[in-house]
Simulated assay, not measured.
Amino acid sequence: MIKAGIIGATGYVGAELLRLLLNHPLIEIGAISSVSFEGQEINKIYKNFLSKTDLICETMDDVIKKCDVIFTALPHGLSEGIAKKAIDSNKICIDMGADFRLTDEEEYKLWYGKDFSEPELHNQSVYGLPELNKEKIKEASLIANPGCYPTSIELGLMPLLKNSLIELKGIICDSKSGTTGAGRGLALNTHFPEENETFAPYNIGGHRHTPEIEEMLSTIAQDKVTVTFTPHLLPINRGILSTIYCNPKEEVNLEFLHKLYTDFYKNKPFVEILPIGETASIKNIRLSNNCHISLHLNHRKDQIIIISTIDNMIKGAAGQAIQNMNIILGFDETEGLNFIAPAF
């Protein structure tokens, strides 16, 4: 039995990862850690774990020592040193933060305000979007788990960019997320009276996921891609809906686009292309590792509109991390992830 460990187990992403891993048939939780709650039982912090696990939050070194696969569910800037210890100990490390998502150190410094502390590790890391990099992930020991917004956008645009069908400038990504995406820490904009019964953008023109989105879309297109990315907070707990606007190089129709997307994702178990005329909705992917995509044209038929929906906590974070682990370990990609979204 493979032993998995979670560093940062008491944040929202860490707790969600623990919930999913406890139901994985081929994984045993070897250890968890939390700086804020060291020495405390996880089932006292999150009551949903009562009678399910009595794991106690240990130190980061304990997790690395006891486990084969190390998940780091930490804010940016905290994972590089831990990843170095894990890799030096011949362990697999899946970083769910932002530390390894960008390959350009100057871009990272611009957006995150610090240099790479372990620059040599960045040459080893693989961007963990399975629908793009599955073969590379199989051979990797260090994974940069993608951000939630980037996952929804990259999956939405990949077939068009791979086939050079759209203009690479002027792409608009208008994304909405549930408030769990902001993390467990307290902030005014996620305080209930501020968020309830409203809907508003934030970090307009300067969200830190922008360079990740542009870098990966440029990698997919093999050419420079620029986007306008605007995130919004929805008064719900979880889920992302991205509405993506792009301009085709030549006239297209929905039948062509639908076949293109269906063929592209036919062997990708977690991406579903909805029938023409239907619209992707957060409700239908909530609590699953699925991405639903619907395809549309404007009334002039000169602009493609893509709706891409994921659960930000699962396909956008913990579920995708497990998907990456499954691929590395040679398990079926869907192992422990075959959740069906609730009907209501």
Rank of each mutant, 00 (worst) to 15 (best):
N324Q: 04
I94F: 08
C67M: 12
N123R: 13
I244F: 05
N338E: 12
D115P: 09
T230P: 02
G277V: 00
E167C: 13
I137Y: 09
N338K: 11
D68I: 13
L254P: 09
D223E: 04
K66E: 15
S281Y: 13
I293Q: 11
M216F: 10
N289R: 09
D332H: 07
R19V: 13
I92F: 07
L78F: 15
M216V: 14
M216T: 11
L18M: 01
I285K: 12
F270R: 05
P146K: 09
E118C: 11
T190M: 06
I304K: 00
N133L: 03
E118A: 09
K138Q: 01
C57V: 08
I204C: 06
K315V: 09
H258Q: 14
N284W: 05
I276C: 04
T219N: 12
H207G: 02
K65T: 06
I42L: 02
Y149Q: 00
R101Q: 03
V69L: 04
Q320M: 10
P275H: 06
V69W: 06
N90P: 03
L18V: 05
A86N: 05
F270M: 06
S125D: 02
D95Q: 03
K65Q: 10
L165H: 11
R208I: 12
K85D: 04
T190G: 05
D88Q: 05
L157I: 05
Q40V: 10
L20C: 14
S79A: 07
Y127T: 07
N90Q: 10
A321M: 02
I153G: 11
V63E: 02
R184Q: 15
K176E: 09
I171Y: 05
